[in-house]
């Protein structure tokens, strides 16, 4: 049992040492976690790939309003985004058993064309260090995380698309070399 009284200086030192590393390291690659797709089949997150083109992983929930605003806004321009950059969006729902069955009809009714994944016990969310939704990751052609954001405000998708274009461009350049 660990109590406040027994909390010793060792753990203080370690805690601050680790906070220092906050600036130094970061998550770079997608961990391998088995979750589900909307067909109820198992899906290993290490299979998130897009032939060297950009990938977006968007953590959301049916009860999260800014998430829906963001995914609705992107949905309207997703065709253009795909044509221009070849990006694929994986929308990972963290809805738990209360609402997880609702995800599929919810997505269809809104007409979203994203690849939908279900993470009902937040296993993938935890592995990706996500605290709240929305939390969005942008991966380059090599599958490395190059950009993240955690909130959505009206119009943010335009700035986000600039990031995606940058990634698509740098991927093309490295291919040409």
């Amino acid at each position: 049992m660990l109590t406040f009284n027994k909390y010793n200086r060792y753990s203080t030192i370690i805690f601050f040492l680790l906070v220092v590393c906050l600036c130094k390291y970061s998550i770079a690659q997608i961990p391998s976690v088995v979750i589900k797709n909307t067909d109820n089949r198992s899906f290993n997150t290490s299979e998130i790939k897009n032939d060297g083109k950009p990938i977006v992983i968007n953590f959301w929930a049916t009860w999260c309003k800014p998430c829906l605003q963001e995914l609705d806004a992107i949905s309207e321009v997703y065709d253009n985004w795909q044509k221009e950059t070849g990006v694929i969006i994986y929308a990972v729902s963290i809805d738990n058993a209360r609402t997880t069955a609702k995800v599929s009809p919810f997505v269809d009714a809104r007409g979203w064309d994203y690849k939908i994944l279900l993470d009902p016990n937040s296993d993938f969310k935890r592995a990706m260090n996500v605290i709240n939704v929305p939390h969005v990751f942008l991966l380059d052609g090599k599958g490395e995380i190059v950009y993240q954001h955690t909130t959505y405000a009206e119009g943010d998708e335009e700035a986000f698309f600039e990031q995606i274009k940058k990634v698509a461009l740098s991927t093309n350049e490295s291919e040409n070399k």
Binding site: A101, K102, S104, P105, F106, V107, D108, A109, G111
Partner: peptide
């Protein structure tokens, strides 16, 4: 559930 593009029933 049942769904098609534009309609979802749960």
């Amino acid at each position: 559930t049942y769904s098609q593009k534009g309609l979802g029933i749960f």
